[in-house]
Design a protein around this nucleic acid. Structure first.
Lengths: 342, 342
DNA sequence: GATAGATTTGTAAATGGTTACAAATCTTTT
DNA sequence: AAAAGATTTGTAACCATTTACAAATCTATC
């Protein structure tokens, strides 16, 4: 393999000059620059990133930790973060927690501590004490998206407010019998969204003086089939069927729509349905939703990280708690309307 | 940060001994081993991966290149590869091509050449001349999945045979009017699946002496909404409506089912529909499909890579063309049946 | 208890870049 | 044309590990 020394020899300059010429960090005479560039091109030279890292302490690589990949929110978030990082010359190494508890332990105890990354981003992950402790001890930037991180920077939407807005949309249309399909009791791995969105639903109902019936909340995983079954339960009950359903995600909203249709109910004439996310396919399903521009968030959170790395001052504390709130908005489509008069 | 020297000092041995004790690559006396281990634990020492890489030439990191993340096949493939790699102590760095042509260029011309990865895996990517050339010049293992790679190892299903089996299933049920929803004319980025599966459909029809009507093939992207619109076209035609539809993927199959229902047609009584993949939600939709264990393929292809890295012999050619064919099978669900008598 | 052989250990040379510092060269000013 | 200042360059130390080689220690044998 050709190294910097080969280039220096061919160009007739020292390795220092080659380094300066190629990195652009210091001025080099036009002649030298040209010689180095042609020599490098001729040899097909590319700097070894490990030598660079060893010398500078920077990896130009950031670690991204997430609980799943095969869900819309996560894959889209990952995609937009990756695009933004590559754009700025950074690599992304992936740490996916779906491999179980022991894989999770290894990631936090081994992989993330190997000085392989300049910073860590977490996507909708709740870190436990020791994980957080491990991460902060590395003194590297930590940035989260999809929920707050104690003691670090994070970007998130106000999930309670989102759940509330979704519900208030239904209330404003005249619905009084409003159910909610939400996440299971927060598992270790999930974040706060499920419960927060449910709380928003409760708050909205209470705020409007409507009753919060236990049987009008059904826990389900965040998938289309999960919500499908939940909604069949809820709509199948001849005495208690609600006229509106608030789903904690759009993927669940799709399941709700399919379930209603499967029962022969019309959406929105017989049931109104709303989700949260603005999934790429929500338009296709005509699903009214609380839109939260996931791609925008991914790009933004990547920029926050890059900024942190750029303006890093030795000695200063890297991570300070700071949660930034991202806006959301109601997008009305054809899955919600006034309840039909009985 | 604590380095190997600190550990050596605390344990009262040389750095060489620390290295040997911790890597387990050479025998160390039990006493020394114990001393080193306690010292390392006390200091919370973790070896710097860049120094390791510089000294050994191995990164324990492999690069994965894919065209999208937010599609079921890709996210599941990625997830299973990542799990297998982490299991064996390898990192995965992600190169996603969805950021456009210039991003693609940078990835192949810069990122993958920086000696940052021990090997490269591509998922359903067609490499052009120069990309392939760049990759093979690094003399690092290259392994593909989802289609062959000229001059390198690859794992793939026989997409033509899969398309053919799907179609023959319809034929064996007695269908004679069989349409196909397939991929657009192979774009640069996609792989051969779209056309291969279409070819399978054609071959099956010809083999059975049935006519191949041009208007019974509709190109669409590989999404549910895409297929939805395509199928509405095809089923809406009063004179030419087929009784069976072969979709090039399950996500398209879902769209086909929804489109049929939307037109008031019953599946399978009025139209039979089949897909390819065995998507996690195919069971939910009752979609008959050609199943290709994507997780299994991901795991396998990761093992092939690890094997290559393990048994790497200096001087031997690393990449030799070899395509391994992965099996698939017909999974019959409720979306296919005999055509109803007119 | 000396000798040979096996095992364990330490010394120091890689690995391939970056960069502080000093030396050399080039401008400008007098 | 010399002096001062600015710019460009080269030398060599440094980053944190691994590992070849030699030295030291241990174990077994006579």
């Amino acid at each position: 393999m050709t190294g910097i020394e080969d280039v220096a020899k061919l160009a007739g300059v020292s390795t220092a000059t080659v380094s300066r010429a190629l990195s652009g960090k210091a001025h080099v005479s036009p002649k030298a620059l040209a010689k180095v560039q042609t020599a490098a091109a001729e040899l097909g030279y590319v700097a070894s990133s490990s030598a660079y890292t060893l010398a500078t302490g920077r990896t130009r690589n950031i670690g991204v930790v997430l609980p799943f990949i095969d869900r819309w929110y996560f894959s889209v978030m990952l995609e937009s973060i990756e695009t933004e990082l590559i754009e700025h010359g950074y690599d992304l190494t992936l740490y996916n927690l779906s491999g179980g508890e022991k894989q999770r332990k290894r990631i936090f105890n081994d992989f993330l501590l190997r000085k392989r990354v300049d910073g860590v981003m977490t996507i909708a992950i709740k870190l436990d004490e020791s994980e957080l402790e491990n991460l902060t001890r590395t003194r590297k930037p930590l940035v989260g998206v999809g929920g707050p991180i104690p003691g670090a920077r994070a970007l998130t939407i106000d999930d309670t407010a989102a759940g509330r807005l979704a519900t208030e949309h239904m209330i404003s249309l005249g619905h009084t019998r409003i159910a909610c399909i939400g996440g299971e009791k927060t598992s270790e791995m999930d974040f706060s969204q499920p419960t927060a969105r449910r709380t928003g639903w409760e708050n909205a109902l209470k705020g409007a003086g409507l009753e919060v019936r236990d049987e009008w909340f059904i826990a389900s995983d965040f998938t289309t089939p999960g919500a499908f079954h939940a909604v069949k339960q809820i709509l199948g009950d001849p005495n208690n069927a609600p006229t509106a359903i608030v789903c904690a995600s759009d993927e669940m909203g799709f399941g709700a729509i399919l379930a209603a249709k499967d029962l022969g109910l019309r959406v929105p004439q017989d049931v109104s349905i709303i989700g949260v996310d603005n999934h790429d396919q929500s338009d296709f399903f005509g699903l009214t939703t609380i839109s939260q521009n996931v791609r925008g968030q991914g790009k933004h959170v990547a920029q926050v990280m890059l900024n942190l790395l750029e303006n890093f001052v030795e000695g200063e504390p890297v991570n300070t708690e700071h949660v930034e709130t991202w806006p959301f908005e109601l997008v009305v489509r054809s899955s919600t309307s006034r309840p039909s008069a009985r």
